[in-house]
């Protein structure tokens, strides 16, 4: 049996389970509509500003850097699996790869992309 068939079955069941569990109260609970009740929670004060405020650009920057470094991690996994077959050649190649990465990392660090204030 292809080992990914159970994965798909588990995925479908997991999504179903999550939907049923989180949807239970919609069927079982009472329903009373009140305009004030449906306001966003702001500790009892009427809503002042909207919920979609501008956010700090740092969060975008973190996301971009994450993609760069995460892809690099995935590359390292491929090499780690074939470490024995590649031998010293692989080690040297990865050392060079990491060196390039470290140069980029130092650049990011010096430009202050990782500073939070």
């Amino acid at each position: 049996m292809n080992p990914y068939i159970p994965v798909i079955i588990v995925l479908i069941f997991g999504v179903l389970l999550g939907s049923i569990l989180s949807g239970l109260a919609a069927f079982l609970g009472p329903k009373k509509y009140l305009k004030e009740k449906m306001d966003p929670y702001e500790c009892g004060v009427p809503k002042v500003t909207s919920g979609s405020e501008k956010m700090s650009v740092k969060f975008y920057l973190t996301a971009i850097l994450f993609i760069l470094f995460d892809i690099e991690t995935v590359f390292l996994y491929l090499w780690a699996r074939t470490f024995d077959q590649l031998g010293w050649l692989g080690v040297v190649e990865v050392a060079m790869f990491v060196l390039v990465l470290v140069v980029g990392y130092i650049y990011v660090l010096k430009r202050g992309a990782l500073e939070w204030d």
Binding site: K37, D39, S50
Partner: peptide, 18 residues
């Protein structure tokens, strides 16, 4: 928790909220 009323805020994006 299961038998409580489900309060969905008016301004919420319904699909993603659920």
């Amino acid at each position: 928790l299961i038998f409580k009323e489900e309060v969905v805020p008016d301004g919420a994006h319904k699909v993603f909220y659920h």
